[in-house]
Design a protein around this nucleic acid. Structure first.
Ligand SMILES: [Zn+2]
Ligand SMILES: [Zn+2]
Ligand SMILES: [Zn+2]
Ligand SMILES: [Zn+2]
Lengths: 139, 139
DNA sequence: TATGCAGATGCAAGGGGTTGCAATTGCCAA
DNA sequence: TTGGCAATTGCAACCCCTTGCATCTGCATA
């Protein structure tokens, strides 16, 4: 799914380079079936390039967020998770009793976004959110 | 604002004690004008009781949350902040360009809460939230 | 009052993530 | 080709917070 040409363009437009490390990290995010953590990316890339440092992973993820190539979310388990932005915008409802995670369409938050803009002139970034509470079974 | 008698009752109902450390920590949260961080609580209480350990502060804050005596929120500056739950339910809109923080009434999120309950049977805990984005000036 | 026992604390180590710095890399212009 | 220079990296130290463990505290019961 990584289109190297486009990625290079997006990076170089801001004076950044597509280094081997960055490419491998992006591929790891891309190849993951689910949300992947920095530590998991690190372990995976280390298999082919053991020199990689974990701080490079974090810095790269920061960069990829900035370029809107990946999104992050914190599902409440003490680490942030990432996925390619092309996997579609969505949010999660996290039950903190049973741990169940319900996927939720982006549209559910549209009225809130509109209300915040209307009432406060605030342009909320409601991207890949996790909302905590109790699910149907645990209520 | 700390009512020792009531607090003791709330604690002992679950088999917990109101230790001097816990009382001092609660008083620090209570006496703060604004949202206060664990480190600030620690520094403040240490003035009168230098033996206090930072992990006791964190454990106590966890307990006070559980008993619904304090709420926490993460305003995006890399540390969690707390205040007494009696200061009223509210949320914050945080501009991540200029850093401006707009206070927001609880009611703004009521429609969302209702929608989540209706559509997903999910009972969301939307308590003392921070929503990030761009304020009117920075848009 | 003496004994038992769960709750609470201090301490040190650990986990996830960030940052300052010096060394390295790779583009670009001469 | 060769410097020059900014971007990038690895490394180590640090920050915020959590956790395992041994010690200590204080209520309850006999
Ligand atoms: Zn997701
Ligand atoms: Zn549940
Ligand atoms: Zn607040
Ligand atoms: Zn702003």
């Amino acid at each position: 799914m990584v289109k190297t040409g486009e990625t290079v363009k997006k990076l170089s437009r801001k004076g950044y380079r597509l280094t081997p490390q960055r490419l491998m990290i992006l591929e790891a995010v891309d190849g993951a079936d689910d949300h992947i953590s920095a530590e998991e990316i690190y372990a995976q890339v280390c298999d082919q390039y053991p020199n990689l440092n974990i701080s490079t992973v974090y810095r790269t993820l920061e960069l990829l967020k900035e370029l809107e190539l990946v999104t992050e979310t914190d599902l409440g388990d003490g680490r942030v998770r990432y996925h390619n932005i092309k996997k579609g915008h969505h949010h999660h409802l996290v039950c903190h009793r049973c741990g169940n995670i319900i996927d939720m369409d982006e549209a559910v938050l549209s009225p809130l976004k509109a209300a915040l803009l209307m009432q406060y002139g605030f342009n909320a970034e409601l991207r890949h959110l996790a909302i905590f509470g109790l699910c149907k079974e645990c209520k």
